[in-house]
Amino acid sequence: MANVTKNTEAQRLNFWEKLYLPEIARGLGLTFKAMFKPNMTRQYPEERWEPEGSYRGRPVLVQEEDGERCVACGLCSRVCPALAIEVQAGETDKEKERFPKLFEINMLRCIYCGFCEEVCPEEAIVMSKDYELVFTSPEDAIYGKDKLLIPVAKLQDRLEFLRQYK
């Protein structure tokens, strides 16, 4: 057998480390020091973490006063590498002509890549700060418009973050 490495754990240790007991004392010392450091643990769910605008939580649809921005162009659904999005367009009398009659994201498929947000010509789908996704059945994981539409006011951080890179 060629290339036998002679760099095993045992070979790397020095005499004192091999003795074992001084190392135990050193480890205990570290633990003891940590007791006086500030506490990093969060008491979730009472204490929650608010991510920055750059955070990619679940994708949501932007809701304006007069309804969704989305025009059901289906680009997000085409670009989605996980085939998570299904869009069915309908016709409205509004100027933009189209709206999503059905808009569903299968959160079991979504991989939070943000491609849908990037491709959207209307800035209508953005990644939110929501990382708390709980469902009890595969059917529950398919989010419809009722769960996806979020008022634009709540998405300001993300929209501002996106504009920096326009």
């Binding site: 059901a72 162009c73 289906g74 659904s77 085409r78 367009a89 309908g90 016709e91 002509e97 189209r98």
Partner: peptide
């Protein structure tokens, strides 16, 4: 046909 689907679908 209007808006029934996008052509690539």
């Amino acid at each position: 046909f209007r808006f029934k689907t996008r052509v690539w679908e």
